[in-house]
Design a binder for these strands. Structure first.
Lengths: 137, 137
DNA sequence: ATCATTGCAAAGCATTTGCATTAAA
DNA sequence: TTTAATGCAAATGCTTTGCAATGAT
């Protein structure tokens, strides 16, 4: 079995540790590295990684629904996504985690998983917006 | 302008108040009501409703991503989804909402929105699972 | 020689769009 | 009669799959 694609993709994911990478981004980065792979392989490998628990898939951005992938760091975390520049921060909050358990219990559910995505404007984008406004006045 | 499609779809959404309906489900229910509409119209109307703020679109179930729609009850809420039967409960939790603001602030974000989806097994499904296990023994 | 992995092209699915047709104001 | 809404079919975007070719053991 050929292993180049798997290794190459894994390396890209490792480089982007903590970041989220789309299949397309991976495809493009592989091109730059002179490792042109068809999308099918990219997706197939990501799929394998996903079932192996190496990688997690997220669907942010309800509108332009394209999955992004990240190395599974085992530790659960939630996401704060900047709606302007797309940057993503991770966080874990004990209070929220605990509260979720309580809520689930109250609703009669056995909680197995959750995803919390917060959307907003990150501080640099806020700054840019502010600058732009002061100019346009 | 013809209004039948819009009214019919609105009615279906109202019937399913608090539930989440997929475009396909709407399509099928319209068929049963002898109001056959093409999917394009279903989606177009839902799209209009969405931009009009009448309807909200969600993408649950990271894997088989199909949107579901619900009447916009204006009040923000989060979701608890049963991974076995697909039933969805709504909830709002002040503590979580507040905590999110704090977290966003700490991360330097201006929070504009969020989506919290909790996944688990609802009590009836837990019961069914339990029954099944006791049989297989 | 066998079996998993690859590349390509084609299929798949949910959703959207172009365009000619039709209904409403 | 002008504008908006509809139906159809075709296009889109992301993702998956069938299959033959290839690489590894």
């Amino acid at each position: 079995m050929e292993t180049t694609p798997r290794l190459a993709i894994l390396k890209i994911l490792e480089l982007g540790k903590g970041k989220h990478v789309s299949a397309e981004a991976i495809y493009r980065r592989l091109l730059k590295k002179n490792i042109p792979l068809p999308m099918s392989t990219v997706y197939r490998v990501l799929g394998q990684f996903e079932s192996a628990g190496i990688v997690q898939r997220h669907i942010f951005d309800a509108e332009r629904s394209a999955s992004v992938f990240e190395l599974n760091n085992k530790v659960h975390h939630d996401h704060m996504i900047c709606i302007t520049c797309g940057s993503v921060s991770h966080f874990v909050d004990k209070k929220i985690e605990e509260r979720q358990l309580t809520i689930a219990k109250n609703l009669g559910f056995e909680l197995t998983d959750h995803s919390l995505n917060m959307y907003g404007v990150c501080c640099s984008c806020v700054a840019i917006d502010a600058a732009r406004e002061s100019v346009s006045e």
